Amino acid sequence: KVILLEDVKGLGKKGDVVEVKDGYARNFLIPQGLAVEATKGNLKEL
């Protein structure tokens, strides 16, 4: 699961917690600054 930092077409809006494949999160969303891993600490910051 990841928390979206920006609106991502076809996935969700900023602040949404979405389930995506590990590779998509690690190789695209997180490096592009579009999402962060949905850890307990990150979820509390919402």
Rank of each mutant, 00 (worst) to 15 (best):
V18E: 01
V20N: 02
K1A: 10
L5A: 03
T39H: 08
E45H: 07
E6F: 13
I30R: 01
N27E: 14
E37V: 10
V8F: 08
N42H: 05
G33W: 03
A25K: 07
Q32V: 08
V20F: 03
I30V: 08
Q32F: 10
K1W: 05
E19L: 14
L11I: 11
L34S: 03
D7V: 05
L43N: 07
D7E: 10
A38M: 04
L4N: 00
D7T: 10
L43R: 02
V17P: 02
F28V: 12
G23P: 10
V8Q: 04
K21T: 14
I3F: 08
G10P: 05
I3M: 10
V8W: 04
A38L: 05
A25C: 04
L46R: 01
F28G: 03
V8L: 09
V8K: 02
G15Q: 03
T39I: 04
V2H: 05
K9L: 14
L29N: 01
D22V: 10
G10M: 09
L5G: 01
K14T: 07
K9S: 12
I30D: 01
E37D: 07
V18D: 00
F28C: 07
L11T: 05
N27M: 10
K40H: 15
L5E: 02
A25S: 06
E6W: 11
E6T: 15
G10H: 08
L5K: 08
D16I: 05
G33E: 06
Y24L: 06
I30K: 03
K14H: 06
G15A: 04
I30S: 02
K44N: 15
V2M: 09
L34W: 08
G23Q: 13
E37T: 05
E45W: 07
G23Y: 12
V8M: 11
L5P: 01
G12I: 00
K21C: 06
N27S: 08
V2F: 11
G15V: 00
T39G: 09
R26F: 14
K9W: 13
N27Y: 13
N27A: 12
K1Q: 13
G10D: 09
L29H: 01
G12T: 00
V8G: 01
D7Y: 12
L5M: 10
L34R: 05
G41W: 03
R26Y: 13
K14R: 13
V20D: 06
L29G: 01
V17Y: 08
V18K: 06
F28A: 04
T39D: 15
V18G: 00
V8R: 04
G41E: 15
L43E: 07
N27R: 10
I3Q: 08
P31R: 14
L43A: 03
E37G: 04
L29S: 01
V36F: 05
T39C: 12
N42R: 01
G15Y: 11
V36H: 07
D16M: 13
G12K: 00
V36R: 06
E6R: 14
G12F: 01
D16R: 05
Y24R: 03
T39Q: 08
R26V: 11
K44C: 10
L34E: 02
L4D: 00
K1T: 10
D22A: 09
G23W: 12
K21D: 15
V8P: 00
K44L: 14
L43T: 04
V17E: 07
K1I: 12
K44I: 14
V2C: 07
V36T: 07
E6C: 11
L11D: 00
D7C: 08
D16N: 08
V20I: 06
Q32K: 10
K9R: 12
D16F: 08
L29R: 00
D22Q: 10
N27P: 02
D7M: 07
R26W: 13
G41P: 08
I30Y: 15
E19V: 11
Q32Y: 10
L4R: 00
L29V: 01
K40R: 05
K1H: 10
K9Y: 11
V8C: 06
K13W: 12
V8T: 03
K1V: 12
N27D: 13
I3D: 01
K1E: 11
I30N: 02
P31M: 15
V20W: 01
I3Y: 10
E6H: 14
L46W: 08
L29E: 01
V18H: 03
V36W: 06
K44R: 05
A38I: 04
A38N: 08
V18A: 04
K13R: 11
I3E: 08
K21P: 13
V18R: 06
G23I: 12
V20G: 02
K40W: 15
E6A: 13
Y24S: 04
E6L: 11
A25N: 05
V8A: 02
K14L: 06
A25M: 14
D7G: 05
L29W: 02
L5H: 03
E19P: 05
I3W: 08
V20E: 02
K44G: 10
Y24Q: 05
K9G: 11
F28L: 06
K44Q: 15
I30T: 02
V17W: 06
